[in-house]
């Protein structure tokens, strides 16, 4: 079943803020085998000009799992069957590094839904802001909904 295109433009603010923890940054760095001291040692981070340890560039992927239930993905009205979904593209724009102690607010928006052959592509844009509302990062995720596009011959008959 095709996705509900009326969802394009809808915004989903996360239900809570997300506090970035030093130990969570360390845990994430451990998981990717990265010993960089700027992820682990506040003194090393300060020497590099940061107020505290910073997070790896893709760390904010954790927001998607922390706030999964505030996402359009799980809104039944969208009609997304998660068993048909694969992650197609991901992009991070970091307006500044994510720092331990940051209290982040996030808003996800359905930016686009379009056909790509038999699949549909849905692009979600998540804006992440700091405690003062300043932009921290913009995450763009493209999900592939396999085989849910309306077949072309059917579409032309309906049109």
């Amino acid at each position: 079943m095709p996705l509900n295109r009326e969802f394009v433009g809808r915004e989903y603010p996360a239900s809570a803020t997300y506090e970035v923890g030093r130990e969570h940054i360390r845990q994430f760095a451990d998981a990717i085998g990265d010993q960089n001291p700027i992820y682990r040692d506040p003194a090393a981070a300060k020497a590099a000009g940061h107020p505290d340890v910073i997070a790896p560039p893709t760390f904010l992927t954790v927001l998607g799992f922390r706030f999964g239930f505030d996402s359009p993905i799980v809104d039944p009205g969208l009609g997304l069957d998660y068993s048909l979904v694969v992650h197609g593209e991901q992009r991070f724009v970091l307006h500044r590094p994510v720092v331990a102690g940051d209290v982040l607010s996030t808003v996800s928006k359905v930016a686009e839904i379009r056909d790509a052959g038999r699949n549909e592509l849905m692009t979600l844009v998540t804006d992440v802001a700091g405690a003062d509302g300043e932009p921290v990062a913009t995450l763009t995720s493209t999900l592939v909904s396999r085989g849910t596009a309306v077949p072309r011959d059917t579409a032309s008959k309906e049109a």
Partner: peptide
């Protein structure tokens, strides 16, 4: 310095 990475997409 990992903070030097401003954008990253795949």
């Amino acid at each position: 310095d990992p903070g030097a990475v401003l954008e990253y997409g795949v």
